[in-house]
Simulated scan of single mutants.
Amino acid sequence: MKYQGVLKKMLTENADEIQYYLDMKTDFINMNQLINKEISISFVTYECLNCHLEKKIYRMGFCKSCFFDTPNAGDWIMRPELSKAHLGIEDRDLAYEKSVQLKPHIVYLANSSNVKVGVTRKQQVPTRWIDQGAHEAIEIVEVPNRYLAGITEVALKSYVADKTNWRKMLKNDIEDENLVEWRDKLKEFIPEEAKEYYIENNGETHLNFPVLKYPKKPKSLNLIKTPNYTGKLVGIKGQYLIFEDETVFNVRANEGLVVSIEV
């Protein structure tokens, strides 16, 4: 069976074992069904996720011009504390920015390679945690806009990490943490503007990834440098495909690449 389409991050469904799906326009692939099978991935060309032209991808699945123009790539995406829609101030497209920034947001703790703090829209729970490869997570505050979530994250990352070590996450070199204790310990550092939104009584969410074998020394596949790769898929964690030879492929980091997949 052969599929071809532009890569976008895998869609996920939280179940006893997380289900992964790859939407390739004309094909919708349940990636879990490919585990323990040999698959080939080949680079074909580029397709910007915004203008859909065949242009080299710059960042986040966008060509260079779209990356600097589309509201989907504004600085506030990566740095929520820069959000200004709550003040009626436009960055690139105020209507779009209001539609995203003025929705309820969650500040959370997740344990992927270590305990880290992060921000996501409420509707993206637990998707965001799955994408990061976290095996456990807990919500700290639920705020009415992205700005409040951003300043809370900035305050808390002085006391806890805000990045995931992808190698450690993929090796499953992790320890269970008591995230309730972490949440309670960090409460005093929440900014005054967000203290009223602190979530007092909630528990951890636990996530189970479909992995048969974790790599000891994961090596990342660069499809531009190695345009054809064949390997046996042995697991999926975060947005990574894990292969038997310890090659790993970050689907999300390769958004905008048109690929063919053969099973």
Rank of each mutant, 00 (worst) to 15 (best):
Y240T: 04
E17P: 08
K195Q: 15
N202I: 14
Y198A: 07
Y58K: 10
K237Y: 02
E97D: 11
M24P: 03
N32E: 07
V160C: 00
K216D: 13
D69G: 02
E90S: 04
N145E: 06
D173Q: 03
G238D: 01
H105K: 11
K122P: 04
K84Q: 12
D176M: 00
R167T: 12
Y197C: 06
L170H: 01
L241E: 07
Q123S: 15
V119E: 09
S42L: 07
K171V: 02
Y3D: 09
E200Q: 14
V100E: 13
V154I: 12
P71C: 05
E175R: 10
N145R: 03
F28M: 10
L34N: 12
L241P: 05
S40L: 08
L221F: 03
V117Y: 09
N172T: 01
K64D: 14
D27Q: 11
C66S: 11
N50A: 12
Q132N: 10
V6A: 13
H86N: 01
K213E: 15
I242W: 02
T70Q: 10
F28T: 02
R183I: 02
L49S: 12
K157G: 00
N250M: 02
G5D: 12
V259I: 15
K185F: 10
I224T: 11
M1Q: 12
V258I: 14
D131P: 04
D16P: 06
K8T: 15
L87R: 06
E255C: 12
A85H: 00
K213D: 11
A137Q: 08
E262N: 14
K195E: 14
K37Q: 15
G61F: 05
N254K: 08
Y147H: 14
P210T: 10
K9G: 15
L233D: 01
P71W: 07
L22R: 09
D184T: 03
G74H: 01
K64I: 09
G203Q: 14
D75S: 13
N250E: 09
Q123P: 02
G5N: 12
P104H: 11
G118M: 05
K185C: 08
R92E: 00
N145Y: 06
N114K: 15
F43D: 05
V6Q: 09
Y20F: 12
A134G: 07
S112Y: 10
S158V: 01
T26K: 12
F249C: 09
K8L: 12
R79P: 00
Q19W: 06
D176W: 04
Q123C: 13
E200G: 06
N30H: 06
I138D: 07
I89Y: 01
K98R: 15
F209V: 10
K98W: 07
R79M: 08
I18K: 04
I151S: 04
